[in-house]
Simulated scan of single mutants.
Amino acid sequence: MINLLSRSRSAVLALSLGVLAASPASAIPVAAPQYQDALVQVASDCYAVGQQVAAEKGGTLAKASQSTRGGQTVCVIVVLVPGKDGERPRRTEVIVPQ
């Protein structure tokens, strides 16, 4: 039984390799899909928004990410604002609609 399974796997592997070798080279994608560019653009927009929010609050940008809240795409911005009189920085989260 084990020998039969081993032969079956070998046959499937050989057949798969044969199909791949016989396929034309033009079937292999050369460029990355276009939809990835949109994701990078949104992420960089949230980062830019985060930098603006941090500057307005006088703090440091800790995190900028995209999220969906209530069916709407938003940027979740986390800013660390310096504490008063040597206290720890305060963590402030700001939701910015896109």
Results as ranks from 00 to 15, higher is better:
L20T: 08
G50R: 04
Y35P: 00
A22P: 09
S10D: 14
G18H: 07
Y35I: 09
V49G: 01
A31P: 00
S6E: 12
P29F: 08
Q36V: 15
S8A: 15
A31T: 13
A22D: 06
V30K: 10
Q34G: 05
N3C: 09
S10H: 10
G50K: 09
A11R: 14
V30Q: 08
L5I: 12
S23I: 02
R9Q: 14
L5F: 15
N3S: 13
S23T: 03
A48T: 07
Q41F: 05
V40A: 10
L13V: 13
G18F: 08
Y47L: 09
V30C: 06
V12Q: 13
Q34I: 07
P29W: 04
L4G: 07
G18P: 11
V19D: 03
S6V: 11
L17Y: 01
S23L: 05
S6T: 15
Q36W: 11
P24E: 00
V42S: 00
A43K: 03
Q36A: 15
A21R: 07
A31I: 10
A22E: 05
P29S: 04
C46D: 01
P29C: 03
L5G: 11
V42F: 01
S44F: 06
V19K: 07
S10T: 11
L39T: 04
G50S: 04
A43W: 00
Q41G: 00
A11M: 14
S6F: 12
A32D: 08
A21F: 08
A48V: 05
Q51S: 12
S23Q: 06
Y47M: 09
L4P: 09
R9L: 13
A32L: 07
R9F: 14
D45G: 00
P33H: 07
D45N: 07
S26D: 05
V42K: 02
A32T: 01
Y47A: 03
S23H: 01
C46E: 06
A27D: 03
G18I: 02
A25S: 11
I28R: 06
